[in-house]
Amino acid sequence: MSGAQSAEAIRVMVVDDHPMWRDAVERDLANAGFEVVAVAANGSEALARFPAVRPQVVVLDLQIPAPGGVEVTAEIVRQDSSARVLILSASGEHADVLGAVKAGAVGYLVKSASREELVDAIRRVARGDTVFTAGLAGLVLGEFRRMSEAPSSPRSAEPQLTDRETEVLRMVAKGMTYKQIAQRLVVSHRTVQNHVQNTLGKLQMHNRVQLARYAIEHGLDEE
């Protein structure tokens, strides 16, 4: 595939504490026509360089020296809501992946994914799409189930998925591609993409509401 549309090369920052990986990813991305504007080996480097280089996409390893991937994701999204964070994780620890997605990451890949998958994922998140693996869809489904099960106080309405959103998410979790889902449900590819994006949006919105409520309850909102 020829991705060298240098006129509008996607600006990427790579955050990984493993030099071998950082170099491999950087080289792959450069070959695919992306502009790697910065690399960082840990959370503080990432946060220091992010405002200066303003990448469109941040490829982020979750297990990095403090601040960790979840905090870095939250801070990046807070500074620039148009920045897209794509998680690339080796250990795939469920709680961390879910934490990063709740904090605002829009995609997740395991490190054993192929170069083509990575390049494709970066293109998609840069376009504004979400990159869901079946594993991530399972985590998100489980999280919505957990929230609907939890005894909710009347004032906090837990976010709920519509039946369609649940149906689409289940299909993603069962490994179906957006194209297959669109065919099965007789809707457009874009509609499927929107449903998936909405589920993520609801989860992130709920996370922000929770954080804000926590801050208000604990008097952290008074500067």
Partner: peptide, 12 residues
């Protein structure tokens, strides 16, 4: 199996 089998499950 990283090449073939994917398992999706809740985080808890």
């Amino acid at each position: 199996r990283s090449e073939s089998v994917t398992v999706a499950a809740p985080a808890t």
